[in-house]
């Protein structure tokens, strides 16, 4: 087992554990913190796959901007106490069972597909570098890129319109 594999397993376990804790924490603030941990471990996976640009963007956008926004909202609403009324036990049970079933079905279905024999290039390769992605982004994908700026603009206006006091 080389260093890459060790890192892979370590990051995977961290991500899964973080995700479990997001779901099970009773306090929303803790959930946010666990989610940030998960995002960091996913960024670690990106680095392992030599997708450095995405790793950085993931940390900046998700772990940074988005999760801070979540924290702000929680604090604004003063939800950081253990105030959530518990759901009915049966609903909880059914939800967990369905999630588990979906996991089982998907794993069983994808266990022996054609792609499963292929492997992933780890630690090497240049496509994840900002130079290559940037060239693609500003040549072939320039139109979607520009459109996404319009999307941001409209999201911003939408957020302001929805959030303002009427």
């Amino acid at each position: 087992m080389n260093i890459t594999q060790i890192l892979f397993w370590l990051l995977s376990v961290t991500a899964l554990f973080g995700a479990m804790m997001v779901v099970t924490s009773r306090n929303p603030v803790y959930s946010v913190l666990w989610l940030i941990l998960t995002f960091f471990s996913i960024s670690g996976h990106y680095i392992l796959l030599n997708a450095q640009f995405l790793a950085i963007v993931n940390i900046i956008v998700y772990a940074g901007a988005i999760m801070v926004l979540f924290l702000f909202v929680i604090m604004l609403m003063n939800l950081n106490k253990n105030a959530e009324p518990t759901r009915g036990r049966w609903i909880k049970f059914a939800g967990a069972i369905s999630g588990g079933c979906l996991l089982l079905v998907l794993v069983a279905a994808l266990r022996s597909t054609e792609v499963s024999s292929k492997s992933v290039q780890v630690g090497v390769g240049e496509i994840g570098l900002i130079k290559n992605l940037g060239r693609e982004l500003f040549t072939n994908y320039v139109v979607p890129f520009e459109i996404s700026s319009i999307l941001f603009l409209s999201a911003m206006i939408g957020a302001v319109v929805i959030g303002k006091k009427d």
């Binding site: 369905s98 999630g99 079933c101 979906l102 079905v105 998907l106 069983a108 279905a109």
Partner: peptide, 14 residues
């Protein structure tokens, strides 16, 4: 919705 997706997957794959 999740149960329906599950059903579709089961029918599709198995």
């Amino acid at each position: 919705m999740v149960l329906s997706i599950l059903l579709v997957f089961v029918i599709q794959f198995f």
